[in-house]
Write a protein that binds this DNA or RNA. Structure first.
Lengths: 339, 339
DNA sequence: CTGTTAGCGCTTTCAC
DNA sequence: GTGAAAGCGCTAACAG
């Protein structure tokens, strides 16, 4: 069915080597021969078989995107999708294909990360959605194949990472609240096996201390980035500490949960509680009231990940961290503290 | 670096043929030999090289997902992401890998659909986000490799499609409005090169006629599924036909644009205009007021697409259409018509 | 500048 | 039951 390099060679009256040469842009080919071959290729609609090429070159021009349980991110977590778009776009631009690999939790096939890499022979990997205590995590960092982690600040010779400056982001959020006059500020964080949670907590504390306020561990609630966790968080916090006048959430989804909770119990945002989220998902600006939040450059994170990966791959660069700046987006869910 | 079948054979004291046999679950292998080989494989951490395997078998165990300009769907169009998750999950379950192929509009690399398929040797393809007038469209339908189209009702021997029953969905939406007493019902449709737009228009007309109402082509506005198109649509419709009391939108995003427009011009939904959307994206339920809409089973569409594809691929089934049911989700943006 | 040759790692006849 | 050998489509020395 498919036309091979041999067919082209025969039709052009040259050896397959010569065809291979023009295919691979070698310069030592007689211009006339090149033209002839090119013409035949065109006519026959020949496309080199990348599988064969991969086999001999031992490179697939493919990067793997490993996500633990992609489907988990369906409802609302558009973080993943935007990063994915960035990865896909940049990979395409640089001539690489993207293959998805998501570990299904159901039917926990023991296809480990390394199995995937070894079998599919991807040239490099970017991972997201993994936790610090994930068994994969260290497998990747130690692996010989280049990798880039999204939101996990670990490096090795072959492993880089890309993440937002979460300390700064959290700090900006909380300082904004402080500037508005709030003094009792709660924090609904993500689970503690996410690197970002640790960083955001640090930022929260730094902002507090920078303003001479003391840090109450009891003002922090740990959720799982989901909407219901946000509702839970506000409920617990307000119940135990009615004096809290503002809450910072480690994700927009949780912030929305928090807002919905306040509203459903007869309150209003920001009148009864000032709220700042994190991410700036598209929902944030569409909400009523529109959510004040810390924007992450998701698409750019994806692009940067591929960029970094290919630099390790093609230039032999060594692993390093890359930090993207957050941005405070002022909208309608915060207002000055009114005693 | 990598351990090959030859290494395993040597270590196990058998020929590579035998190793290949146990790898491929052939039965004509002495149980003892099999055990020995298996043990060596385990010890050496051997993983068969799927590239080599693909070359000789001329099958890659890979399906391609072709999307025209994936990034376009970033803000708000979570339709794509959910379908993608479905595709990914089902493909994984069935032992196939997913490779993404999105055509970047910028730098319109002339890498056509067929080039991709021929080069990467994917076994089959699912396409989404393509238009009827897209050059790809017919290339795919006619191709020898199996394909499944999402939302484009075209079949051939090797081409199937999966889509929601859009006629019925639109009909349900409009009938709901009619039952509420509305008589002057506008329709903000998608662009007319989308198959779904045609179907939804049909449903709209059918509902009208079924209730003995007449169809005014002038009550239909054509947008591009984006938020701003919805705003535009309502503006035009209300301006030219102030008597319109309800509008059906061909996407939630447009419906939201419509709602925002009404609100920003001092009106209220549903008091001043009843609204029904289409899709049921996560935003819909989170909006204020929450959006009444027609739900599409996006994740299931993705799964069904892969299912169908693999049936063509592995059982030689011939192309066919698959229709998934829509569902009316009642929320807060519609109310009885009050003269 | 061009052709010959030897693999890349695997599956698959075909003998034994 | 098992092995030898051919070959998938291509690239990469190495000659000429």
């Amino acid at each position: 069915m498919g036309v091979t390099i041999r067919d082209v060679a025969k039709a052009a009256g040259v050896s397959i080597t010569t065809v291979s040469r023009v295919l691979n842009q070698y310069t030592d080919v007689n211009p006339k021969t090149r033209q002839k071959v090119l013409k035949v290729i065109e006519q026959m609609g020949y496309q080199p078989n990348s599988v064969a090429r991969s086999l001999v070159k031992n490179r697939t021009q493919t990067v793997g995107l490993v996500v633990s349980d992609l489907s988990k991110y369906r409802s609302g977590h558009h973080f993943m999708f935007d990063v994915l778009c960035g990865i896909n776009d940049r990979a395409q631009e640089l001539g690489y294909d993207l293959v998805l690999f998501s570990t299904t939790p159901t039917a926990q096939k023991k296809t480990t990360y390394m199995d995937f890499v070894k079998q599919r022979r991807v040239d490099g990997v970017v991972m997201m959605g993994i936790r610090l205590d994930d068994p994969y995590t260290h497998e990747v960092v130690e692996a010989s194949i280049p990798s880039v982690l999204i939101d996990v600040p670990l490096t090795s010779k072959t492993c880089s990472y890309v993440m937002t400056d979460n300390v700064k982001g959290a700090k900006m959020a909380v300082e904004h609240l402080i500037n508005l006059g709030h003094r009792q500020i709660g924090f609904v964080n993500g689970h503690d096996q996410a690197a970002v949670s640790k960083e955001r907590l640090t930022g929260y504390i730094q902002a507090l201390e920078g303003a001479g306020l003391s840090y109450h561990p009891d003002y922090v609630y740990y959720g799982n980035f989901e909407q219901e966790d946000g509702a839970q968080g506000v409920r617990c916090l307000k119940q135990r500490h009615p004096e809290i006048s503002a809450v910072f959430f480690a994700s927009d989804l949780m912030a929305i949960g928090g807002i919905k909770y306040i509203q459903s119990s007869g309150g209003q945002v920001p009148r009864d509680l000032s709220i700042v989220g994190f991410d700036d998902i598209s929902l944030a600006s569409l909400m009523q009231p529109a959510l004040t939040t810390i924007r992450q450059m998701r698409y750019e994170m994806g692009r940067a990940a591929v960029e970094t990966l290919l630099r390790m791959l093609e230039n032999g660069e060594t692993g390093r961290g890359m930090i993207l700046p957050p941005e405070l987006v002022l909208r309608e869910t915060t207002e000055p503290f009114a005693k």
